[in-house]
Amino acid sequence: MYYFRSRVLPVIALLFILLAIYFRTPEPPHEESRIMMDTVITIRAFPGGETNAVSRAFAVFEAVESEASFYRAGTELVRLNQTGSLPAVSSLTPLLQIAADYFKLSDGYFDPSFACLQKAYGFYSNAGRLPGQDEIDNLLKNHCGFDRVLARSEQGFTLASGSLIDLGGIAGGYAIEKAARVLREAGCKAFLIDDAGDIWFEGQKPDKTAWRIAVRDPRDNGSLAFIESRSPLAISTSGDYERFITVDGVRYGHIMNPRSGRPVDYYSSVTIIASEPVAADALSTAVFAMPPDIAFSWVEERNLPALFLTSTGTIHLSTAGRQFFSQVKTQ
């Protein structure tokens, strides 16, 4: 009895204290959502960084919006679309260069110059219409093709008359990258940025669990699959269910086939995982525009983790995707 009370009991007590420390409720993260860039942006930063880090990260989104918004008056992009020119030194230059890189990488399937087609279909006015074949042919021939309609010289950028550029396909990913840098430099060890479903996370959460992301199933608003990782990842999904027009009872999504100039209807959603937010953002849009026979082999050749939900309800997972996506629905 003496031995138990003097030796064993203190050890057990110490064990309980250690267990209590291990299972203690961690300090909650700073989580904040703001409506910006025509959507909702959420930042969740776990304790450890500077107190105003999240506000500064939101300021990055504001800065990118003031440069690259298609809608907001006075942005550099609106200036380019309205005047057809932009000086060589512009805050938009890095984004335009990135857009050119992904246009080339995706064989033209990621094309910010499709904005003129989207305008013809009424996506910007919420008054859906179906343009005739002659109108589509004219737009494809004279106003689409990012490498043809946007010229760069020592004097700056020149946009072909009647063409439009919409950088919505990469501006979010670009802003996420810049905001992540701000949080990192402010000392945040673990954080997640969610720009309307375009997600970036890094660092170890205080409870040491893996980051867990659900892929939305647009058919029932449930989960199509899950992604769990302790390593930093960028995840982006393109779909036809949040931005579309309806004409004569038929729904048309906003992503265009660069060959036909018509809205694509191959998939309900395409989710891409990448090591950089811009890559996930641009490639999910590009792959969504590709017909399945091209898209499936394209992601395989690049060892890209991808999850497709086709418009007929078939689910396709790329080989690289098998190590990232779990609990994938079978149909």
Binding site: S33, I35, A196, I213, A214, V215, S223, F226, T237, S269
Partner: peptide, 26 residues
């Protein structure tokens, strides 16, 4: 979550179905 951007409204289900997630890609 259900989001209405123009109206500035977010409805967030406080679901706990045994599959907690940090975010939803959509």
């Amino acid at each position: 979550s259900l989001v209405c951007v123009p109206n500035g409204i977010i409805v967030e289900p406080a679901a706990d179905t045994g599959s907690k997630v940090d975010a939803v890609t959509r």
